[in-house]
Design a protein around this nucleic acid. Structure first.
Length: 266
DNA sequence: ACCCAGGCATTGG
DNA sequence: CCAATGCATGGG
């Protein structure tokens, strides 16, 4: 069934992140089709005229797919603004129809970031794949990302056996067991979310900012500590990432995604 | 055999 | 309060 998206929308380009650094077992891309477990069922998503074809599409799967594909981003104001900006006036049209994917679940978003701290994304994807395979539930051809309950019940040694450092294993299990309403973070403003997350062991400024950007889709999220973003900003602008941030206000999040994606286009 | 990669907490000055 | 250090894996 068709889930309409505002034009333009380039599904292939937008889902590039699900395959750019190795297979993502929780967001599995196979031959132009994205597979994702939702509520114990396998959902398939593929490009279609006027939007994406989603099977099955119902009240349970629709909000997850909309979140996953970043349907909440308002691209028109961004592209109109970008047209008058240095660098972005060139970069954004080259990625016409790019809509950053989001992490539909807060726990998944945070654990994904912990696994990606410091190491290359290739290494992070490999480690995370083993984690998803071991602690997640297989639903057809895809895996449901491990639940918070399942991770809370697992041991740090088990995660270490999958390639987590002892520290990251401790952070991940600790987060799962922590008494903190992760869904409730959506009700807080940006600075409150930052303060709450940074107070959690293992979650620093970088992780908090990517949570704002990739889970909450906050327009002003700007992961200035991100190594790849620093390099992209230096490449395109010859500027320090902290200098550029305020100039992009209030479009930092989409700008960051476009710059990062553009920086790895051939 | 190195060295670096989309951080973070800990330790030592 | 800032600088230095260890961390585990994958790719070059």
């Amino acid at each position: 069934m068709l889930l309409p998206f505002p034009e333009p929308y380039d599904f292939e380009l937008s889902t590039e992140r699900f395959r750019a650094f190795g297979p993502d077992l929780a967001n599995l891309w196979v031959d132009g089709v994205v597979h994702r477990a939702v509520g114990g069922r396998e959902v398939t998503i593929q490009a279609a005229a006027g939007g994406v074809e989603v099977e099955p599409l119902d009240d349970l799967t629709r909000p997850v797919v909309e979140k996953l594909l970043g349907r909440e981003f308002e691209l028109d104001p961004f592209t109109a603004w970008a047209a008058s900006q240095p660098v972005l006036a060139e970069v954004v049209p080259r990625l016409a129809g790019f809509r950053p994917p989001l992490s539909p679940d807060p726990f998944e978003s945070l654990v994904t970031s912990i696994t990606a701290q410091q190491v290359s994304l290739h290494a992070a994807f490999a480690i995370r794949s083993r984690f998803v395979e071991r602690l997640g539930t297989r639903i057809g051809s895809v895996y449901a990302f491990p639940t918070r309950e399942r991770v809370a019940a697992s041991s740090e040694e088990e995660l270490v056996s999958l390639g987590f450092s002892a520290r990251k294993a401790e952070y991940t299990v600790g987060l799962a067991r922590l008494e903190l309403d992760l869904d409730g973070l959506a009700a807080l403003d940006d600075d409150e979310v930052r303060a709450t997350l940074v107070a959690v062991r293992g979650l620093g400024p970088w992780t908090a900012e990517w949570f704002l950007a990739r889970h909450l889709a906050r327009p002003r999220a700007w992961p200035a500590g991100d190594l790849a973003l620093r390099k992209a900003v230096d490449l395109f602008y010859g500027l320090d990432v902290h200098e550029l941030g305020p100039r992009l206000d209030p479009h930092q999040n989409l700008s960051a995604h476009y710059l990062l994606t553009a920086s790895r286009m051939p």
